[in-house]
Design a protein around this nucleic acid. Sequence first.
RNA 1: GCGUCGGUGGCGGAGUGGUCAAUCGCACUUGGCUGUAAACCAAGCGACUUCGGUCUGCGCAGGUUCGAAUCCUGCCCGGCGCACCA
Length: 409
Amino acid sequence: MAKLSEILRERGYVHQHSSETLEEITDGQKRTVYLGIDPSADSLHVGNLVGLLALRHFIEDGHKVIILTGGGTGMIGDPGGKSEERNLLDEETVARNASAVAAQIRQVFGGKDFIEENNAKWLSTLNLLEFLRDVGKHFTVNAMIKKDIVRDRLEKESPISFTEFSYSLLQGFDYLHLNSEYGCDVQVGGSDQWSNILAGVEFVRRKEEKSVYALTWPLVVNKSTGKKFGKSEEGAIWLDAKKTSPFRMYQFFLNVDDEAVGELLLKLTLLPKATVDDVVMDHAKNPGARFAQRKLAQEVTRIVHGDDALAAALTETDLRFKKDLTRADKDQIRTDIEVGMTIADVLVAQGYAESKSAARRLVEGKAVKINGTLVDDVDRVLGKDDVDSDGMIVLTAGKSQPASVLALK
RNA sequence: GCGUCGGUGGCGGAGUGGUCAAUCGCACUUGGCUGUAAACCAAGCGACUUCGGUCUGCGCAGGUUCGAAUCCUGCCCGGCGCACCA
């Protein structure tokens, strides 16, 4: 079996590590690795998958993994990447989010065992004086204000509260706690977490005189827009099927550009490197077939939602973009609508437009078709005359949006 | 506490009494080209509308005015300087 260091490197999971060599962390003794997850939402999004899949390789190599939900720190907020002070979350929300997120991680880890922790457990009972004495003493403000994320805020004269400023101390304290409790000796994260993680490493070393490690992966960035991966036109692609349907997730990956698809296959799927290479080569022969994107979309949807949901997403993709739907096809995906709705109403009801004004714009932009014929009047009421020979109305609004099949009640 | 500068749409950032639903850039949506790509070109981008308009909007609340994002008062929030305290 390939060494973990090789796997991580060839898949692009390695950005920085605190040890001289990556091998020191990955290939020697079995480690206990921790990843902190921010519970600010009740679901992870596809951007979180990079780290989770990297960790899955650790698990499969025999290392232990701790997922630390930032129940305590989540109530505070990390200043990283945010130009504004964050809203604080209440305890109940954090707890609810944490349990939803843990369930998603279990799924992505494919049933492999890991330790779940929540730093609210030890942070919420922390005594201020003890904290200042035992933790605060080991951090210098001199070093803290040099951190990019802090310096930016200072330079832009954008406020940063003491609370946010203290974030890395708490993260360091977490590391110390997990080290003594579980012997945790590696902390991983996205490259934006590097300085926080490193602060923890140094803290544990000073405090306990123990060597612990830091390892980060590169953030996945959309090369054409320079934006963090995982955001789409309508916001994040969530792992929660209720927030983002498996169908939509599948569509999202199907639409990934050629530039990015190879990288994503390595980082977001478990396909062996050799297989990915083959897929990318096949794809290059005929990029129009979107072979690599199909593979990517399938693999990711399967990892997150399972085989059944993937099959359903494939069926739905097939039907909702198909040119000539059969009667049976239409029956499968049809939605019944009330008689008397205008086209604008239906566009809003089916989620193509957020408001009637938006629906109007779609129609004015020549985006809306009924049974393949361009619609020119939003206010028209849909009626018997719009029905095709199967008694259905096939509605499309924008070519990258799936079609809807409507039946009058 | 005193002084001073500032708070505008998802973000950045103009505007400083009427022509402002608010220049511009980014993001986003749609159309064209294509491969359900990218790049590029074009249009759109508060809501409602009988398509004439109407309503809501520039930190919050009042006021002045025929008319306010723009002026005044109070409040809230933030930056900077000074003072105070340690």
